[in-house]
Simulated assay, not measured.
Amino acid sequence: MVDAGDKLNTSHFQSHLKRANLLFSHSNAAKSQQAPPKKAYFVLLDHFSMSCFSVVLDTLVTLNMVHDQPIYDCQTYSLQDCKALSDISIEIPTNGNIQDIKLEKGAILVICGGFRSMLKSEPRLNALLVKATQYHVTIMGLWNGSFYIADSKIPIGQAISIHQDNKAIMEEHFPDLNLSTSNFTHALTQDSTLLTCSGPNSALDMMLHYIVSAYGSDYSQAVAEVIGSDRNSATSTKITKHFLRSELHIPNAVKDSITLMENNLEDLLSIDELAKLVGISRRQIERLFKVNVGVTPARYYLEHRLTHARQLLQQSNLSVFEVSIACGFISSAHFSRTYHRFFGQSPTETRRLSQAV
C-alpha cells in the first residue's frame, strides 16, 4: 500500500480543502493573540424577517468559527422596550434600544426589516444612520430595511435593493433611486460601505460577497462550506464534488483523478496508477494538478484523506485505529503524527472536542 504523505514535509492545507478545514486547523499561537472583536449591531424592526436576520447572523457567527479568532460581537437592538416582534410572531429580547448603540469604527450596522414592517420615518434611526457614516461603519439593509436607509438621506450609490412588495412605496417616496428587487447591491461611498438585499435568498449571497471583499475568498468559501453547501447539490455530501462543479475550467483528467482518490481512500492508488487510469502520463498529471489545484496529486490525496479522517472522527464511533485504516495510513501512530501536524491536535482531541459541543 502506497502512503502518499511519506515524503511531504509541509503541515498545512494548501488545496481548496483548506476552506473546509479552516475551523479545525488553527494554531494555538494564533488563537492566543486575539484582538477585540468588532461590533455587529442588528436593529430589529417590528415584524422583522426572522429568516433574513438568521442568515446574516449565522454567517457572521460562522465566520467567527472558521477564523483563528472571533471577528464580530453580534448584538441586537430594538426601537423601544428592548424587544422586537418577528414576522413569525416570536418576540425577541434585545440587548437594548437603538439609543444604547455605541458606534465604533469597523463595525457593522444591520437594519432588519420584514414583510409587515411599518414603513415610516424614524428620526432616531435616521440619526443613527447618519452617525454611522461619520464612523465609516458598514451599513446593511435587509428586506425593506433599505427604506430607512434611503429615508436617512445618507449617500447610497447607484442602486439599492428592496423587497418586491415595497417597490411601489419606494418609487413614491424616492423617485430618483435605482431599485433592485431580485438580488443584493453593494455600494462604496465616500463615507461608508452599503449593502442591501431584498430577501433571505439574496441575504446569503450578500454576506458571502461581503466576506470576500473584507476577508478574502478562502474565508467566504469556508463559511459557504458550512452554511451554503446544500445549494450546490441536493444529494452529494462530498466536498470535492462542490469543488469540481464550481470550477468549470478543471480538466477532465483532474476531475477523474480526484474522483478516483475519493473512491480509493483505504487501498490507495499510486500516482502512476492514477495517471494510467485517466489515460495520461505521470508528468502530465503532476503538471495539471499544480496548475489547476495548486498542489501535487500526492499532496491532494493526503489532504483529502485527512479531511475525511477529521469527518469520521467527529461524526462516527470508529476508533482512531479504524479511522486510520479507512483513510489509508500505514499505522495509527503515523496517522496520529500526520493528523497532529495539520490540525494542531491529536485525533483523540478532535473527537473529544466534537463531543463536548
Rank of each mutant, 00 (worst) to 15 (best):
D6L: 15
K7C: 09
N9K: 13
H16M: 08
K18S: 12
A29S: 10
Q33V: 03
Q34V: 04
Q34E: 06
L45I: 13
M50G: 15
M50I: 15
C52F: 08
F53T: 15
V61S: 11
A84R: 12
I88P: 03
I90D: 09
A107Y: 01
I108K: 14
V110G: 06
R116Y: 13
S121Q: 14
L125K: 06
G157H: 07
S161D: 07
S161V: 06
Q164I: 10
M170L: 09
D176A: 12
D176R: 10
S180I: 12
N183A: 12
N201H: 11
A203V: 10
D205M: 11
S220R: 00
V223P: 01
E225R: 10
N232W: 12
A234E: 08
T240W: 13
T240K: 07
L244A: 05
E247A: 05
L248F: 07
P251R: 02
D256G: 00
E262R: 09
E262T: 11
L265M: 15
A275T: 03
N292C: 02
V293T: 05
G294A: 01
A309H: 01
Q315A: 12
L318D: 12
V320Q: 03
F321C: 07
E322P: 06
S336T: 14
R341V: 00
F342D: 00
Q345E: 14
R352D: 06
A356K: 10
